[in-house]
Every structure is written in C-alpha cells, then in structure tokens.
C-alpha cells in the first residue's frame, strides 16, 4: 500500500497509550490529508502500540488514510526508540517525502533518533508549511513565542513534529467506497535498553478548574508567591471562578503544579480566561486555546498572549489587580453598576 510512486508518501506517525489513541495523534490524523497535500503526496498512517487493530481501523477511517500498525508488547506505552527503529525501517522502504509526528517531547525524541539514523533533517514544533519552487519553508515559534522562525529545507525526506491545529480538520467530501487498508507488522524484539514500566496518571483532587466559568491564571509576571492572594481576590469577584497558572509560575513554586494549565497540565475552556502576567508560550496556549473570551493583563503589549486575547490591559498585574478588586468592592458597596 505504500508503493504509490506517482504521488510520494507522507508518513503520519501516531501512537497509542495503553490501547487508546493519544490526543495529539487524533489531531494529527485529522490534519493528515491536508498535510500530505502540502507536500503533494499521499498520507499513510503509522500507528504504534500493542493489540490495537480496532483503534487503527477507526483512526484510518476518520483520517481517510491507510494505516500500518507497528505492534510490539513494549509499545503498550509510548516507546520512542522502538518507534524510531520501526518508522525508520518504513522510511527506508518507501522513501517518503516527509515523516510527521505530533509535537510532544517523546515524539521529538523518536523524530530526532530516526532522523539521525536515516541522515534526514529534523525540524520540530512546525506550525506552518509553505512550498517554494524547489524547497519548503517551515515556520515555528522560538524564544517562547516571542519570535517566529522560518527555515528552508530542500532535502527529502524531512522529519517533522507538527503543532496541533496546523490545518483545520480535513473534511473528506467523497465517501470512500471502501475503508482504507490496515496492515499490522510485528516489530522485531530488538530493544532491551528502554524498558517501559507503566504510566502515572495525575489524580486531580477536583475538577474545579475544568468546571469554572472564569479562570484567573498567572505566569511569571506574578513575581513571587506573596502575590498569589491577588489572584484569589480577583477570582473572588466572579460567581464561579478558579485559579490556575502557567508552567513558569508553577515551576518557580509560586503555585502548585496541580494548577498548571497547558500542554502537559490541565486543559480549560472557560467563558472567561483572565491571563495575568502570562507571556503566552505555545505550550500554555495549548491548554486554554478554547476559552471563549480571553483578557490579558501584561506589561508587554507584544506578548504572544495578546494575539490570542480579545481584550488587554497593559499593566503590572501586582498593581492592577488590587485596583480592579478595589473598584469592584466600591461598585458592590455602592450597589450600583459601573
């Protein structure tokens, strides 16, 4: 199924976690045909896991592409070295134009490992692809989203990790008269040096953040844990609010890690997201992108968060939030509207 010489192949690499398709892989599958189209190629899915044929069939159907399952008992949990060797062997076989992984840290590992082995260029966190006459221009965020970088690659295959939502989901207008094929290959038992032991799932004590109508969230602009009370005071103005934070604020110990919003933390989609002192790194945006209204309080009008915000106040949150709360109290005491 991967011998279509006319079009060339774009490998779309997904993964399963304990028998379930990962969220990033689902998203990448939805983008598969447009991604392949950008390379003027045809998407072929590759899915790693163990005993996952049903998952592969369903992924293949929704993404509208044939899927090759790379099966190994040690792929029940993500296994970048086995993924790299399995996908690397497929790349040798079908000479793809590009190999696309979803963007996360272990996919970066698999991509880097296989790119090294097949001597291909590796570009991660790609969020736009343009075709020029004889090369491709790939765009990505650098410096935590403060700048955008455009790189050119003229070499195929190229190995990429793709940011979620690069293209809106592909909508297939034609109803295929047959389901795309799914083929399973057993990976050779070669890797004994990366031994997955299991998965820890964070036990969130409550779902307050996910259920909140308003999320008041802080980043490094909070300056220190002594200002956390300002967030609670701001949250106290709303009917149903919870406090969260960016990775920066949580790593510094200003807020507990359980409140971290972003790619590796929690995902929220409140009616109002009040982003205080948050620069807007792509990893953070991944956890709050679906918020209906975003208001930024930030000293830097060029901060990436302002691009996603509907409203912004350019100010230091440690000065502005107390004023906001004071004006709120005054309004309530007077009993009149502002």
């Amino acid at each position: 199924m991967i011998q279509n010489k006319c079009l060339g192949t774009v490998l779309i690499v997904g993964e399963t976690v304990d028998g379930r398709l990962s969220a990033g892989s689902r998203d990448l599958g939805n983008q598969a045909s447009r991604l392949a189209g950008q390379f003027n190629g045809q998407a072929v899915g590759v899915l790693t896991g163990h005993d996952i044929e049903q998952v592969a069939r369903s992924w293949s159907k929704t993404a509208g592409m044939p899927v090759i399952v790379l099966d190994h008992a040690q792929c029940r949990y993500p296994n970048p070295p086995l993924t790299a060797s399995g996908v690397g062997a497929l790349a040798d076989e079908c000479s793809p134009l590009a190999v696309c992984f979803p963007h996360n840290m272990r996919a970066c590992q698999a991509a880097a490992t296989m790119a090294w082995r097949i001597k291909a260029p590796c570009i991660t966190a790609v969020d736009a692809i343009l075709k020029e006459s004889d090369y491709f221009v790939l765009k990505r965020a650098v410096f935590g989203g403060k700048l955008r970088e455009s790189v050119s690659v003229g070499h195929v295959p190229m190995v990429l990790t793709i940011m979620p939502g690069l293209f809106s989901p592909s909508v297939s207008l034609e109803v295929p008269d047959h389901s795309p094929s799914v083929e399973t290959r057993l990976l050779a038992d070669t890797n004994h040096r990366f031994i997955p032991q299991g998965i820890n799932r964070r036990k969130d004590t409550d779902q307050a953040l996910e259920r909140a109508q308003v999320v008041v969230s802080a980043g490094r602009g909070l300056k220190g844990p002594e200002y956390k009370g300002l967030l609670d005071a701001a949250a106290g103005m709303f009917k149903n609010a919870a406090v969260g934070g960016s990775r920066g604020a949580c790593d510094l110990g200003w807020l507990p890690h359980s409140l971290q919003i972003g790619e590796t933390g929690r995902t929220v989609s409140p009616a109002l997201y009040l982003a205080c002192g948050i620069s807007g790194a792509t990893q953070h945006l991944a956890g709050m992108r679906e918020s209906r209204t975003v208001v930024a309080v930030n000293t830097d009008p060029k901060a990436a968060i302002c691009n996603l915000s509907h409203y912004a106040v350019i100010d230091d949150l440690t000065v502005f939030l107390p004023v906001l709360r004071e004006r709120y109290d005054r309004m309530r005491n007077k009993g009149d509207e502002v």
Partner: peptide, 23 residues
C-alpha cells in the same frame, strides 16, 4: 558533519492581530 542543513531564512515578531482591544 553528515546531516543535511536546515537554513534559517528569517525571524520575525509575531504579527499582531487587530482583534485584540487594548484598554
């Protein structure tokens, strides 16, 4: 060094969307 080169063409500041209203 055997790896194919990836050239940075340029960097730019993210385009400011006009939809954000600054108070």
């Amino acid at each position: 060094n055997h790896t194919p080169t990836v050239d940075t063409l340029r960097v730019s500041f993210p385009q400011q969307t006009t939809s954000c209203q600054f108070f």
